[in-house]
Structure formats: structure tokens, C-alpha cells
Design a protein around this nucleic acid. Structure first.
Lengths: 252, 252
DNA sequence: CGGCTTGTTGACCTAATTCAACCACGGTGG
DNA sequence: CCACCGTGGTTGAATTAGGTCAACAAGCCG
């Protein structure tokens, strides 16, 4: 297994149910057509029929929908190593848009290649399925965040989640990590206005919980942040720590 | 195919990607151990290791999580024909609870049987995968509902969604349908307090949009309800109508 | 230089929460 | 039979979180 293969970050840091090198190679061979996107470019538009899915090699992407007055709700943030729209393989059309945040490199996988995989590689199939259910688990946590937390808690929760996910792919050292979203976009994640997000982030600074410098976040008090956000990262199914750290590997 | 098989409602009313009778039979044979639950009984508890998944034969169930002060957020409502925790097959542990609302009949499917299916029936596998992604699509819509709509809109959206899903399984005639949740529980769906839900439902009555009688809802003005809730049911992937009604069947 | 976007701050307003009292009801036990 | 209680729903008054509108400052880019 070459270290420089495209899918090397796929499920990095996660419980991988014994994903084998040969399977990663199979996946890697299915991936083709690497291309670059600039900020705001879409790879999926709501309702459009899909014949390929997209793997995010580097950079960030978001899923979003737009309401009747043009307001946008961000439904998910994708980071390198994510299959951003593998959902489109079983669903064929998606109900939301997927677009680039900043500069992005993606790879495409044809649904024909995925069909071949599910016919010949049941174990790899289950792992791909699993990866789409990680998205669903994050969706549920976003429902919790919006339903039960106030503005301050929502931001704390989002920062904790993002930090942990970036740690899995070694883009966070546990303290400082990149934050590609503007305040306006973080507001669209958290279901509040950008004005109130500005005030909320000021409060976070005031409380010495985090520091924001341009495109990076530095966590000054992890426990305080996790407490305010009622964050428990078990739902991210990290390979180490939490409820899920036991007999996962090499089963099934 | 006997009409009385347990899984007859599975994906009823949905785009089924050419689900064949033989495949439904295969699924039906994998299902066993029908049992009854009373109100509040749990089939999944957060973090618990699962070796079976649950198919809902009759009645209603909810997914939920509880916050640090004991407040509950409902993450999803399940209706007859839903595989309530098929997610647990790839994930092995879930991050939330699943419990009965009122009297319920369920059937269990062992993960061993599901493993056999994904090894021998790739097409059926994709359909099971698809069914879990319908849940994810609903999750996304719940994020939108909580992030972008006010209390009135959230209730309207939830009622429209529930009505459409029940129509798929012929439990709604398009006007009147059962609503198993109390006002308190609908409040836990919509992320508001039960006091405010009482006021919001009073407003809905005032506007002549819906009538509530005990465990049933009657829609008096569907368009008004859908407008307030900004509801567009495409994400439910109904077999008829909407963006998704074209060349779905019998492909793949 | 001007014009754009992002973030900040202030004053005011509104939606929703909180706390409380209260009613209707369907048991359950005396 | 009635007294009792717990649950679900309703209503009112006071409070608060967040939204709205507007002005302005700091980049940043053509």
C-alpha cells in the first residue's frame, strides 16, 4: 500500500471494522478524475441526478439547503478523507447542495465502480455503508445541538466536534486547528444570525475558552468548552477512547 | 408472496429501486422473534452493543437523547414499516435511545442474518443501505427545521412530514392521521418548551390550519400548513410526485 | 483610490422561556 | 361511591435570548 494513495485518509482515526490494505487498494482503484474546485463551487445540486460520488482529498466542503427567504442552513461540514456524497449512490438524487469552502481537491468515483464493489466485496460494502452512517450520527448530534443548546453551547459543541474530527486526520494537535468557515457560515451551522455569532464568539474569547486568529481556532480550555457544549464525542466513533473502544476491529 | 408477511410495509410508497418479491421474501425470512412493547419500553439504549436490529411492525417509536439537565431531544419518529435501528448493523453501537410510543409490535433481525444478506444479495444490500439513508435525509430536514424555522413553522413542517410518511403506509388519507405524540413530545421534537407548544398549537387552530382531537390530527388547509413549514416532501423519496419520480424503478 | 466582504457594536424589538396557578381527565384506593 | 393524585393541557405575567436594523471599522482586491 503506497502511502500516497488518494484514499489514505478514508476513515482515518475511526473504528474501521478491520478495513484491510487490499480493500483500501480496491477503493483507491475505483477513484479517478481528481480535480480542483474554488470557493463556492458546487459538486452536487439539490435534485440533480448523480452518476458519480465525490471523495474529498484536501480542503473543506459543506452541505446546505436554502429556505424561502434565501437564508442558508449548513447541514454538515466535510473534511479531508470524507466521502462527501456517497449518499448519492443509493439515493441517486440528493435533497441538498454540496459546495467547496476555499480551495479544494476532490476525486470522483463512478457509481458503476461502486456497484462492482458491492457485488464483489461485501466487507468493503459494509464499511462504505458504515461511513455514510457516521454522517447520519453527526446529523443526529446537530439536531441535538440545535434543539437543546443555546447559541454559546452550539458554537462550543461545533468547535469540539470539528476539532475531534480534524484530530482523526491529523489536522489538529488537540489545541489549534484550521477553521475554514467565516462567522457568517458558522452562524449558518448554528442556526443563529451572524450578528449574534459575533457576540457569541466575543463571549467565548471573554471566557478565555478559545482564541480565533484568522482561519484558525486555538482551544484554551477544552473542558470548559466541552462542558458548555455538552460534548461527548462517542458518536464520532473514534478508534480510541469512549464507549466504542473495544472489540471492534477485525470483526464482522 | 403472502400478503400477510411481516415486512410488507418495508419501503411502502417509496422509490424502491426495483425491490423484487423474492428479495422481500429473503428479508422476511431473516426476521424473527416478534414481540410486543408497552409505552416507554426501550429496544436500544445509548452505547449498548447490538447483535440484532429491529423492524417496526405496528405502532410508533422514537429515537432520543437526553441533555445534562434531563431534557430530552427527539431525533426521529418511526412508523410501521421502518427498520428502526438498522443503523446498528454497521455501527454496532448507537449513540441514542430508541423506545416505544404507545403499544408496539416489533420483529428482530439478527446481524448474522444481515451479514448473510450482504454476502449473497448485493441488490437487496443496496436497498437496505438506501433505507438507512432515508433516515439520514430526514435528519437533515430536521436540522433545517430547527435551524431556520420558528416554532409555528417547525410544527407545520413536522405535521406535513408525518402525514406524508403515514400516507405511504396508508395510515393517512391525506387529511386525518394518527399522532401518537403528546404535546410535550412534539415540543421535544421541535426544540421548544411544552408551554410554548401549547400556545403554538392554539395558534394553528386559530388559523384554521389543523384540528387536534385526542390522538389524531386533521389538516384543514394543507397548502397553508406546507407554506408555513416550508415543506417540500422530495426528501422523503416518495414513489409518486416530486423531483424523484422518473427512472428510478428497476435500475441498478 | 473606491468598492467589497467580514466582523463589531449599539438601540430597539420580538419570540420564546420561566414560573406559576389552574382545569380536565382517568385511574386507584379507601 | 367519592377522595385523591398524577398527567396533559391551558393561561397569565415577568424575564431573557436572540433578531433586526443601522452605522462603522478593518482588511483586501481590482
Amino acid at each position: 500500500m503506497a502511502d500516497n494513495q488518494l484514499t489514505q485518509l478514508f476513515l482515518a482515526g475511526r473504528v474501521r471494522h478491520g478495513l484491510r490494505a487490499a480493500e483500501l487498494d480496491t477503493l483507491d482503484r475505483a477513484v479517478s478524475e481528481v480535480r480542483s474546485l474554488v470557493h463556492g463551487e458546487e459538486v452536487v445540486r439539490r435534485g440533480q441526478r448523480m452518476e458519480t460520488s465525490t471523495y474529498l482529498v484536501s480542503g473543506f466542503m459543506i452541505r446546505s439547503v436554502t429556505d424561502s427567504e434565501g437564508g442558508r442552513q449548513i447541514l454538515g461540514l466535510h473534511i479531508p478523507g470524507d466521502f462527501v456524497d456517497l449518499h448519492a449512490f443509493p439515493l441517486k438524487r440528493l435533497d441538498h447542495d454540496v459546495s467547496a469552502v476555499g480551495d479544494v481537491r476532490i476525486a470522483q468515483v463512478s457509481h458503476r465502480a461502486l456497484r462492482a464493489i458491492i457485488e464483489q466485496h461485501p466487507h468493503l460494502t459494509r464499511i462504505l455503508w458504515y461511513s455514510t452512517l457516521l454522517d447520519a450520527a453527526m446529523h443526529r448530534e446537530w439536531i441535538f445541538r440545535l434543539g437543546r443548546l443555546d447559541a454559546l453551547g452550539r458554537v462550543c459543541h461545533f468547535l469540539c466536534e470539528t476539532e475531534m474530527r480534524l484530530r482523526f486526520v491529523e489536522m489538529s494537535d488537540g489545541v489549534t486547528f484550521p477553521m475554514p468557515l467565516s462567522q457568517r457560515e458558522i452562524a449558518e451551522v448554528c442556526g443563529i444570525t451572524s450578528v449574534h455569532m459575533s457576540r457569541t464568539m466575543a463571549a467565548l474569547r471573554q471566557l478565555d475558552l478559545v482564541a480565533f486568529d484568522g482561519g484558525a481556532v486555538t482551544i484554551l480550555n477544552y473542558q470548559g468548552l466541552a462542558d458548555l457544549g455538552e460534548f461527548d464525542g462517542d458518536y464520532l466513533y473514534g478508534r480510541h477512547g469512549g464507549l466504542f473502544d473495544d472489540d471492534y476491529e477485525d470483526r464482522m
